[in-house]
Structures are given as C-alpha cells and as structure tokens.
Amino acid sequence: MLQAILLGLVAMIGNATFLAGTGLLDRPIVMCTLTGLVMGDVKSGIIIGAMMELAFIGAFSVGGAIPPEMISGGVLGAALTLASGNSPEVALTIGIPVASLALILKNACKIFILPYFVHKADQYAKEGNGEGVSRMHMLGGFLYFNLPLGVFVATAYYLGNTVMSTVLNAIPSFVQNGLTIATGLMPALGFAILASMIVNKKNAVFLFLGFLLAVYLNIPVTGIALLGVVTALIIVGIQPAQVSTALAGGDEDDDF
C-alpha cells in the first residue's frame, strides 16, 4: 500500500517536469531510477531505465504531437518487473501497453477537464484579473492530469501487482528472447522519428557521415556530436558575409 502511494508520487514528480522547464524529469531513465529507489533495488531500476529510455527515445512532444504517456509506462513497467523478480526486458512488455493506455487517459483529461480551466482563465483575463489567470494555470495543470496520473499509477500497482507477477512468470523463454531482440531494435524508431523532423535532401548526407565515422573509426557518440559542431561552424562560416550583415543590423537597433 505504502509502496503504491510512493509510486504514485514518483509519477507526479515525473509529470511536474512541465513545471520544471520541461527538463526531462519524465524520462524513463529518471522515472525508473526513482522507482528502483521505492522498490529497494536502485541498480536494477537504473538498468531498466536505460533500456526503456532507448526504447522511448523517439517519444517526445514536437509541434503539438502527444507522445505515449511514458511516465506511467516507466514507473509501472519497472515496479512490476522488480516486484516479480523478472529480467529488465520484461519491463518493456508492461511499459509499452501501459504507456498507450495512459495516453488515452491523458487525452481524455485534456479533452474533458482541462478546457474548463483554460476558459475560466479567459474569463479572468477579460476582467483584468492577472492573479486569476495565474491560479487557473497552476491549479489546472495539477488537477487535470498531475493528480489523476498519481492516482492511476498507485491504483494500477496496488491492484496489478499480484496478478502481473503470475502472468509475467508464465512468459515462455522465446518471448523473453524476442523482447530482448526488440529492445535492440526499438531505438531505430526513435532515430527514424528524429531524423524525419530534421532531414531534407540538402542535409541528409550528414546522417551518413555520422554513421560512417561511428562504424569505421569507432568514434563515440559524444565525439561525433562535437565533430558535428565543428562541421556546422565550418559549413555555415563559408558564407560569412550574410551573417555579418545580420549582426551589424543588430547594433543599429540597440539605440532606442
């Protein structure tokens, strides 16, 4: 019972990433670590977190798209796996369906609860009540999803713990292996989504440059990112005339 409540709180901390500058508190690598702490096995929590992080690397919000609700996926996936004493890969089998399910919950909250606060804020604005607008923002965010998410995670763990353990222990080994294989494939989805955001005919060649540097020269990702910065500076710097005009324009305007 206490564990269930603590897990609910962990999920609420995760959701509070949207109060904390969207600073990645909600990511599986953070959520599963905290879950590990609650479950008394931090190390396994961290490992599960790393695996889930790679699986969910493409799940993030861009241009108004809502990704799977990976907070509950991460917390419940890690908690139920640890409680049943299963191997880390199992966390994904729980995490992915839970994340999809919780996304439905999140969208329902966004459609049925949140608009009330948004419209109430409009009303306060019309009255010139800035404090009212602020209150609707803080309260709205907490009540529409932060609290429901906490309750959802706590309840799901409380009810699901015993049932899930039996189910998980009955999973045949070829499925377990399949999950491990899938864990290795998962990041491909994330990279595909990331690439689709940035890539065009002009710059696609750089993806292959990064890839080839990694496979033939074995340069780690950090090194390639830094090489990328240098490459970007060189290429953008080839036409410096345009940039300096832009900066000169900036100086003129500082006068007022």
Partner: peptide, 16 residues
C-alpha cells in the same frame, strides 16, 4: 542548418 548538421551526425552515430 547548423543545428541540423549536429543533430543528424549524432543520429547517424547512434544508429550505428
């Protein structure tokens, strides 16, 4: 364009 270069090179490396 510059950010795209850094991002894509990192993605390429991570695919590998």
């Amino acid at each position: 364009y510059g950010a795209a270069i850094v991002g894509l090179m990192s993605i390429g490396a991570m695919i590998a």
